[in-house]
């Protein structure tokens, strides 16, 4: 089937991009003054210890050999070893994955329906008071720094109203209620800008769609307005929206670093942040690669959804 082959081809196309990212990361890491070992050991390492470590990580070998080795190990799924935790990076990522994915997933779950509803409302009431209000709210939403929003939420909700705890994480699969109380503020923090952006997108693409000739056709042929809005316009307006949803994975992953830092959630973002502070670079690179892979998969999935929704896309 054409769609399957298209999907396969798109997934294969991820590989060269990942390869590029790996190379970029390798170059950046080796642009470091000194070497990771000395950075790790601090200013006065015992020479012997340093030499041992350097040899065991292969840092004494020529760069191109190291690069080649690195690629080979990556190909085998080995992301390297963490200096700080003294464990394989892939294990760490695997352990820390759940909170990040849960927060991100919930953010989408909150943002998408709200954004679509408000966006359609704005487009249907184009240039009326309700539309102006939603447009302004949208602008305000994308202009609010999420880290500030998080602080204000903590100040009001936790310190003043004493409603919700401000830090920690419990898996929803273990204790759903406690998990929810811990997740509400992080999800609001991530979803606000998200909702605003998707709403603006929905609204503008709906407005554009509502001007399309085929919408006039539908109206001219007595199709009820509700169906014109939902069936005829939205199906088309969905196309740019789908693309944005995919691209937003990147923003959300970036946001997860901030949110997990502020709300003390032991996820990938937090792992990444800590690894940079600790100069545990193999972890930083591992998380970055993982993030990029997630993003690229997200983009491919939305491309596939796009091809599925729009019959004009030829995927062979």
């Amino acid at each position: 089937m054409g769609l399957l082959r298209y999907a396969f081809r798109r997934f294969v196309q991820i590989i060269p991009v990942l390869f590029g990212i790996v190379t970029l990361m390798f170059v950046m890491m080796h642009a470091l003054p000194g070497d990771p070992v000395r950075l790790y050991l601090g200013t006065e390492p015992g020479q012997e210890l340093a030499d041992d470590l350097i040899a065991s990580y292969g840092f004494d070998r020529p760069l191109h050999e190291q690069y080649f080795d690195y690629l080979v190990r990556l190909g085998q799924g080995d992301l390297g070893q963490s200096f700080v935790y003294n464990r394989p990076v892939s294990d760490l990522i695997w352990e820390r994955m759940e909170p990040t994915l849960v927060v991100m997933g919930l953010s989408y779950l909150v943002a998408l329906p709200m954004a679509i509803g408000l966006g359609i409302y704005g487009a249907a009431r184009h240039n009326e008071a309700g539309d102006h209000a939603s447009r302004f709210a949208g602008l305000a939403g994308i202009s609010t720094p999420n880290f500030w929003l998080a602080l204000m939420l903590i100040y009001v909700v936790t310190y003043h109203l004493e409603l919700l705890p401000a830090s920690g994480y419990t898996s929803p699969f273990i204790d759903p209620v406690e998990s929810l109380t811990l997740l509400i503020m992080p999800v609001i923090t991530l979803a606000t800008a998200q909702t605003a952006l998707l709403m603006r997108m929905t609204r503008s693409s709906m407005i554009e769609e509502l001007r399309a000739d085929y919408i006039e056709t539908a109206r001219a042929y007595g199709i009820p307005e509700r169906k014109v809005l939902i069936r005829h316009s939205f199906r088309n307006a969905l196309l740019p929206l789908v693309t944005i949803v995919g691209l937003q994975v990147s923003t959300l992953l970036g946001g997860s670093v901030i949110v997990e830092e502020i709300f003390a959630i032991p996820g990938l973002g937090r792992l990444f942040f800590d690894s940079l502070i600790d100069q545990d670079y193999s972890v930083a690179v591992g998380v970055t690669l993982f993030f990029s892979t997630l993003f690229l998969i997200g983009v491919v999935l939305t491309d596939i959804a796009y091809a599925y929704i729009d019959p004009r896309i030829k995927y062979d």
Binding site: P16, L18, G20, L24, M29, A31, S250, G254, F272
Partner: peptide, 23 residues
């Protein structure tokens, strides 16, 4: 465009943080 895509595939904040950590 492939090069640009590589840059694009890394979340902006993450890339900027790595850059700042290194330099």
């Amino acid at each position: 465009m492939r090069t640009v895509e590589v840059l694009y595939a890394i979340p902006g904040l993450v890339l900027a943080m790595i850059f700042m950590a290194i330099f």
